[in-house]
Write a protein that binds this DNA or RNA. Structure first.
Length: 559
RNA sequence: UGCCCGAUGGUGUAAUGGUAGCACGACAGCCUCUGGAGCUGUUCGUCUAGGUUCGAGUCCUAGUCGGGCAACCA
């Protein structure tokens, strides 16, 4: 049963939006925004926020803006802007003409800052970063006033204009809000609103050397865009009083900020900083490494946008900080691919089989079902001949009753082909099995036995002469611990990197697989779901990424 | 330690003072030309202590535990 995407969702934020609609708080408008900073690639945690922001707008016939919060030029880059646009679109959301940049508001923000200074609600502080910290105090001790706090309006105005003019070096002055140095909330102790950064901005170039901080910029942006519901993650909760104060001081339209818990996924990291470290350190091949929880990584791995959306619906929206098991994400892609992915046969760890009583030169075409869950997917022909490959793990010299596969004297079905019985085993000098000899029953062609004889196991295979060879990348979780970020003070999260997170094998595959084009998803029967890699595949030589393995109840009981 | 936020099975979530439900997982059985999928069933939960109430997961008080905040990051 496909989990629908159309059933209405409910959570405390949606309830609040519905309530505001009932009371006419924003004249029936619903305007949300997804405000990424272009300093890294989007990951599945962002997908949760995107589904919320765009979802709420959609459900209420409102709009959701895509707004780049580009207020810190030293960390930001167009590379990230481009990837974010691509990823949000890929996830299935559209912002229409509502694409905005904080940097487009810089002039208005500057005017706003001037107003704050004139109203004696902001002042220029000359404290060095260290002194600034020192004066702020600690949670248990109140801070003390900066000398700049008593500066005259005229002098503040003059300094601020000269800051903009480029007269001062980075760090010499900062514009601060005049709030309360004794507040128990550190963010209310005269937070910085503007700092000097002689840095090239990816959009405004060198027009500015003065940039607003998040606290000043974010509320301002929301206000200009007349956002109604400003949704963000829990760590901004302590900033909310400042958000409200600022818009109040500016005497402008005020949206309401509501916070929800960010997504945490087991066995991976969800911080742009840590991902950057993995990328730059070469621990992964790039931001789109299929082992990363980035949207481009998941996409390359083979995850569909719909499966990620359904996953986001599944985890819900709360204020509880939790750790979502990565198997829940895997469940959603398996559920979709079981319905939609064509089945094919590929042998990841080939062992040769010779059917001794099968004619030497003969090749037959046998009919195979493309998708047992979807009759409309039709059938295909696959070649069968005397020499085949089967999975090495599907043969065992000494097998117990629980082992349903091939073993000396045992009969199994070769999927869509024949019943075969193992007659002999050929070994190398060192004892490793080189090939298995079998006999087949011609009466079982297609896989059915006319005499009603039953066989316990069915295994997949590939005809040797017609087999193609492809590289297949098998993935395991990137980290071997559930919460890799939980490390001792002297530890490093990279210590728990799983050394076996990537294994590349050379597989023997049926012809249909060699013909697959990049981006195609399929199920290698009895093994898992795979996606033809969009980056490293070449015509005639596709490379496959394992999306997720099939459930293996034999492997589970075997261990 | 100061302030803020939170606490429901193994995990994620619902129940808006009235039968603690759903999904994932686990386990068992059935079915099966994928040891897949599907079907059926089982297991397991309201942090603690008081209070309000006919009735509390829900409201109140205290505590416990977990998280956040002390960038001129967002």
């Amino acid at each position: 049963m496909p989990e629908t995407e159309h059933e209405p969702l409910s959570d405390f934020i949606r309830e609040k939006v519905a309530e505001d609609l009932r009371t006419g708080k924003y004249d029936g408008r619903v305007v949300t925004r997804f405000p990424p900073e272009p300093n890294g690639y989007l990951h599945i945690g962002h997908a949760k926020a995107i589904c919320l922001d765009f979802g709420i707008a959609e459900e209420n016939k409102g709009v959701c803006h895509l707004r780049f919060d580009d207020t810190n030029p030293v960390k930001e880059d167009v590379e990230y802007v481009d990837s974010i646009i691509e990823d949000v679109h890929w996830l299935g959301f559209d912002w229409g003409e509502h694409l905005y940049y904080a940097s487009d508001y810089f002039e208005q923000m500057y005017e706003g800052a001037l107003k704050l200074i004139r109203d004696e609600k902001a002042y220029i502080c000359e404290l060095s970063p260290d002194a600034f910290k020192e004066y702020r105090g600690v949670p248990t001790r109140p801070g003390k006033a900066s000398p700049g706090r008593s500066r005259s309006i005229e002098e503040n105005l003059d300094l601020f204009q000269r800051m903009r003019g480029g007269e001062f070096k980075d760090g010499t002055y900062v514009l601060r809000a005049r709030l309360d140095m004794e507040s128990p909330n550190l963010h209310m102790r005269d937070p910085a609103l503007y700092r000097i950064k002689h840095a090239h901005h990816h959009r405004t170039g060198d027009a500015w050397c003065l940039y607003p901080t998040y606290d000043f910029a974010h509320g301002f942006e929301d206000s200009i865009e007349r956002v109604t519901h400003s949704l963000c993650t829990l760590e901004f909760e302590v900033h909310r009083p400042l958000y409200d104060w600022l818009l109040n001081a500016l005497e402008v339209y005020r949206p309401e900020q509501t916070e929800f818990a960010r997504l945490n996924l087991s066995y991976t990291v969800m911080s742009k900083r840590k991902m950057l470290e993995l990328v730059e350190g070469g621990y992964v091949s790039g931001w789109d490494d299929p082992r990363l929880p980035t949207l481009c990584g998941l996409r390359r791995r083979g995850y569909t946008a719909a499966s990620i959306r359904r996953f986001c619906r599944g985890v819900g929206i709360t204020k509880v900080e939790s750790l979502t098991d990565i198997t829940l994400l895997e469940h959603h892609i398996k559920e979709e691919l079981n319905r939609t992915a064509p089945r094919v046969m590929g042998v990841l760890d080939p062992l040769k089989v010779v059917i001794e009583n099968y004619p030497e030169e003969q090749v037959e075409e046998l009919e195979a079902v493309n998708n047992p869950e979807d009759a409309s997917a039709g059938t295909r022909q696959i070649p069968f001949s005397r020499e085949l490959y089967i999975e090495r793990e599907d043969f065992r010299e000494d097998a117990n009753r629980k082992f349903y596969r091939l073993a000396p004297g045992r009969e199994v079905r070769l999927r869509y082909a024949y019943f075969v019985t193992c007659t002999d085993v050929v070994k190398d000098a060192d004892g490793t099995i080189r090939e298995v000899r079998c006999s087949y029953d011609p009466a079982t062609r297609g896989g059915d036995s006319p005499d009603g004889r039953r066989v316990k196991g069915t295994i997949h295979w590939v005809s040797a002469a017609q087999a193609g060879e492809v590289d297949v990348r098998l993935y395991d979780r990137l980290f071997s611990t559930e919460r890799p970020e939980d490390v001792e003070a002297d530890g490093d999260f990279k210590d728990s990197l799983n050394p076996d997170s990537l294994k590349i094998v050379r597989a023997k595959v049926e012809p249909a697989i060699v013909a697959m084009t990049p981006g195609t998803r399929c199920q290698f029967e009895r093994k898992g779901y795979f996606c033809c890699d969009t980056k490293d595949s070449t015509p005639g030589q596709p490379v496959f990424n394992q999306i997720v393995p099939l459930r293996d109840s034999w492997g589970k009981q075997a261990q």
